[in-house]
């Protein structure tokens, strides 16, 4: 039986607004097991990104529990939550968020520098990651010299280079055309299968939805449906 990696129990997240507190997430109870390829879908403002941020310990819930790899996110201090992200979670963003002054190689290398991986091992891991996404020839390029699809594949390589247990992808194909979207999705699916990494997407892109094996629909911060596909 696959191991549960992420558990949210009656999780609510409020944001302060001018008119009081706004609940971005309400009583969200979900489990994600090892190796899942799940998508959180829903319209804008439904709480998809907030859910990913809390799971990724970039934010904390207001109520309820969020347990990621056995750790209650809201009880982690800054150092512990940074360590959780650094060691176990990879992020992929809609706008790629590549570090502009670094080369492709250096961008991918960055998470391993944080992990203080030895030089030789690090070089091999970076080249392997670039190989997974088919960008070894772009190692010395700067992000500004890449297309959108290439940039997102670099972001995937950066998220995957440390072989994390979980990858959180926030609208990864929103800025890409169909061909690049398919390419990126195929890459992620391949890595999910080969490395057993859990992928959780937030998306409202139909192309992504066609790839995912579990579809969680959020409406106004509540789980509307949670369906296993295929």
């Amino acid at each position: 039986m696959p191991k549960i990696q992420i558990e949210t129990k009656k999780m609510t997240k409020y944001y302060p607004t001018g008119e009081g507190l706004f609940a971005a997430l309400k009583d969200v109870t979900l489990n994600f097991t090892e190796g899942e390829f799940a998508g959180i879908v829903g319209p804008s403002g439904s709480g998809k990104t907030t859910l990913l941020n809390v799971i990724g310990s970039l934010d904390t819930q207001s109520e309820g529990e969020v347990i990621v790899l056995g750790k209650e996110v809201s009880k982690l201090n800054a150092k512990e939550s940074a360590a959780l992200r650094s060691e176990h979670i990879g992020f992929i963003f809609q706008t790629y968020n590549l570090l502009p002054v670094y080369t492709v190689y250096e961008n991918v290398e960055f998470p391993l520098l944080l992990l203080k991986m030895p030089d030789a091992e690090r070089q091999k891991a970076v080249m392997d990651a670039l190989d997974w996404v088919g960008l070894t020839d772009k190692a010395k390029s700067r992000p500004t010299q890449l297309s959108g699809g290439q940039s997102q594949r670099v972001a995937i390589a950066r998220a995957m280079v440390k072989k994390p247990q979980i990858v959180l992808a926030d609208e990864p194909t929103a800025n890409l055309d169909t061909e690049n979207s398919m390419n990126v999705l195929e890459t992620m699916e391949k890595l999910n299968k080969e490395l057993g990494t859990t992928y959780i997407f937030s998306t409202h892109d139909a192309k992504v939805i066609a790839f995912i094996r579990r579809k969680i629909t959020l409406v106004d911060g509540r789980v509307d449906s949670d369906v296993i596909i295929g």
Partner: peptide, 9 residues
């Protein structure tokens, strides 16, 4: 934000 997401304190 990216530095933080990648695991820097």
């Amino acid at each position: 934000g990216t530095f933080a997401a990648l695991g820097m304190t």
